[in-house]
Design a protein around this nucleic acid. Structure first.
Lengths: 312, 312
DNA sequence: CGATCGGTGCACAGTAGTTGCATGGGCTAT
DNA sequence: ATAGCCCATGCAACTACTGTGCACCGATCG
C-alpha cells in the first residue's frame, strides 16, 4: 500500500471526480486512474464504478478513502512531531556536569534554555569526567560539562565535539585577618608555612592543576582538614584552620569572614572547562541552544571575575 | 513520506542494526541505509548516529519509528477493513423490492443472507420499478427485485446485471361457495359474468399481464371494489364481493373462506420477476449472497406452488 | 596489528510511475 | 435525433526511483 495511491483515492472520493482529484494532487487524470486501478488490484476490491460520464466511489472505495484520511492525519502528526522536535518544542535535553559547574555555570545556562525552549524537558545530572564521558559516548546523555586536561584550542580529536567554555583560575581564600589579606596578588611560595584546608572535589581530576602549582612553588602544603566541597572549605578557612586554594567557579557564594585573592598571573593554576557533545547532535536545537547558553554563561562568569569587586 | 522507508526505519530502531533490519524487511543493508538517509533528508533530522561499529537511533529516530509503528497499525487496520468488507463481514446491503416480493420472496432470502453474513447490515425498502431502477443506477441501493416486462433469457442490455428469479403466475381466488370452486383449472372466459375485486398494487406495472389476459379472454371485467393490497382483496372475495386474480407471490397467507384455482396453462398470465444489480457490485460478497439467496427462495416458491396442497 | 564486522557511498540494472495521446461511452444542446 | 463535448481509461514512451553489488572506511576483537 502506497501513501500516494491512498492520497489519490481520497482525492477522488472527496471530489467525486478523477479529473478534479488529479488537479488536487497535481497529477494527470491518467495517473490518478492508474493509481486507483493499482489499489483495486492490491485490495481485490472495486473502489470506483462508472456513473454516467463520471465515476462514483463504491462502499469499499469510501471505506478505504476514510482510512486514507486517517493515515494522512497520522503522517501529518508524525511530521509535526519531528519538526517540533527539530525546532526544540519537544524532547528531552540530558546534561551532565561536574559538581562545581553545577553551581555557577549550569544554572544561568539552564535558565536561558528553558526560556528559549520552554517545551524542552531538561534532565540534569552531576558526575565526574570518568563517569560522564562514557555516558555521552553511549548516548545516555547529550551534553557533558567537564574539566579537561587540555587547553583551549587543543580539543582532542576523539570523535566528540568539544566546546571550550572558560579557563577557571584557582584563587586563594584567606581568613579576613590573615597577614597577606591586604595584598591583591599573592605568590604561592609565600604560603609555604601556612596550614591548608584540603578540598576534595570528588575523584580529584580537578586537583591536578593545583597540585602542580604546589610542586612548582617548591613545597607540599601542610593539610589540616579535608573538605568534601568548596563551600564548607570556606567555613574551615573562616574558622582559622588554614588557607585554601579554590577554583573561581567554586566561589559563587562567599563566607563573610574570608577574602579572595589572586595568585601571580604567571603561576596561576587553571582548570580548563569544556562542554562536549556527539557530532550527531549538532543539528539538535536543544543541544545547540545549551552549548550557546553555556558559552554565554561562561563569558559572563569571566567578566564577573575580572570586574567583580571581590576579585573572584 | 513513504511507508517502505518508515518500515525500514522502524526495523532499524527495533533491531538496533541496519543489517538486522535489512534481513527483517528483505532488503540489503545498503537499501535500508539509503532509505533512512532519504528520511533524514526529508525531515531534516538526524535519525541514526554511528555508535562503535553499529548505529544508535537518535531521539528523532525513535520518535519517527514510533509514529511509523502507528502508521503500520493503521495500514493493517485499513487492509483488514477492506478484506472484511470483501468477505462480507462488514458493510450494508441495500435492497429494494416491489411490494409482493417483499412478502414472499424477500423474507427467506434475507434470512439466508443474515445467517451467512451475520455482520452485514441489511437495509430493505419497498418501491415500484419506476422508483427503484433510478435508485439502483444512482448507487443508492445495491440490489433491486422487480417485475420486468421481459421474459427469462431476454434480459435487456442496459448496463445492469439482471438475474431471472421466477415467472410468477396469476391465480384465481374464489369464494368457497363459488360455482367453479370445485374445478382445479379454470378458463378465464368462464368468469366473464362474475363481479371482480380489483387489486391495485401501487402504480400497476404488475397489472399489465393481467389486463392482457382479460383482453385475450375477450371481455372487460366488472369491477366492484378496489383493494390496495392483495391481502385485503382476499377479504373482499371471502365477503362475496366478487372473484380476484392475484399473483401467486401475493398468496403467501390465505383467507379461510377462499379457494385458489389455476388458470388454463396456455392462457396463464405471469409476472416476470427479476433481480438487478450494477455490474460493479458482482464482486461484492453481500450482493452475490443476496442474489444467490433470492434465486434459491424463488426456486423454493416455485416448488411449493407445484407441490403445495392448495395449488398456490 | 591484522582480520572481521557493520554501515555507507557509488554505479548500474530493473522497475515503477508519470505523461501525452487516442479511444470509447455518456450527457447535452441544438 | 444527432453532433459535440466531457470524462475516465488504456497504451506507448519516457523519466525517476529503487534495490543490488561492490568497494571503502571506521571500529572492534583476537
Amino acid at each position: 500500500m502506497d501513501l500516494r495511491r491512498l492520497r489519490a483515492l481520497q482525492a477522488v472520493v472527496d471530489t467525486g471526480s478523477v479529473t478534479a482529484a488529479a488537479d488536487q494532487v497535481g497529477y494527470t487524470p491518467s495517473a490518478v486512474s492508474q493509481h486507483v486501478a493499482a489499489l483495486e488490484r492490491e485490495t481485490g476490491a472495486v473502489l470506483l464504478e462508472r456513473a454516467g460520464r463520471g465515476i462514483r466511489p463504491t462502499e469499499a472505495g469510501r471505506l478505504l478513502a476514510e482510512h486514507a484520511r486517517d493515515l494522512m492525519a497520522k503522517v501529518a502528526e508524525a511530521e509535526a512531531a519531528i519538526s517540533a522536535l527539530q525546532s526544540g518544542n519537544l524532547g528531552t535535553l540530558r546534561v551532565v556536569s561536574f559538581p562545581t559547574a553545577g553551581a555557577s555555570l549550569i544554572p544561568p545556562a539552564l535558565a536561558m534554555v528553558r526560556q528559549e525552549l520552554p517545551h524542552v524537558e531538561v534532565a540534569l545530572r552531576v558526575a565526574e569526567r570518568d563517569d560522564s564521558m562514557p555516558m555521552l559516548r553511549q548516548g545516555e546523555v547529550d551534553v557533558v560539562v567537564t574539566v579537561g586536561d587540555f587547553a583551549a584550542g587543543e580539543a582532542p580529536r576523539d570523535g566528540l565535539t568539544w566546546v571550550h567554555l572558560l579557563d577557571d583560575p584557582y584563587r586563594l581564600v584567606l581568613p579576613r585577618g590573615h597577614r597577606l589579606a591586604g595584598r591583591r596578588v599573592i605568590d604561592l611560595a609565600e604560603l609555604a608555612e601556612d596550614d591548608w584546608v584540603e578540598t576534595m572535589c570528588g575523584v580529584g581530576c580537578c586537583q591536578e592543576a593545583s597540585s602542580k602549582a604546589f610542586r612548582n612553588a617548591g613545597y607540599e602544603p601542610h593539610w589540616t582538614v579535608e573538605a568534601d566541597e568548596y563551600w564548607p572549605a570556606q567555613g574551615f578557612v573562616a574558622a582559622g584552620l588554614g588557607v585554601a586554594m579554590i577554583p573561581s567557579l567554586g566561589l559563587g557564594v562567599l563566607h563573610d569572614s574570608v577574602v579572595v585573592r589572586r595568585l601571580r598571573k604567571d603561576k596561576e593554576p587553571v582548570r580548563h572547562v569544556w562542554a562536549a557533545t556527539r557530532p550527531a547532535l549538532l543539528g539538535n536545537t536543544p543541544v545547540k541552544t545549551m552549548l550557546r547558553a553555556l558559552e554565554q554563561a561562561a563569558g559572563e562568569h569571566v567578566r564577573a571575575m575580572r570586574d567583580g569587586p571581590r576579585a573572584r
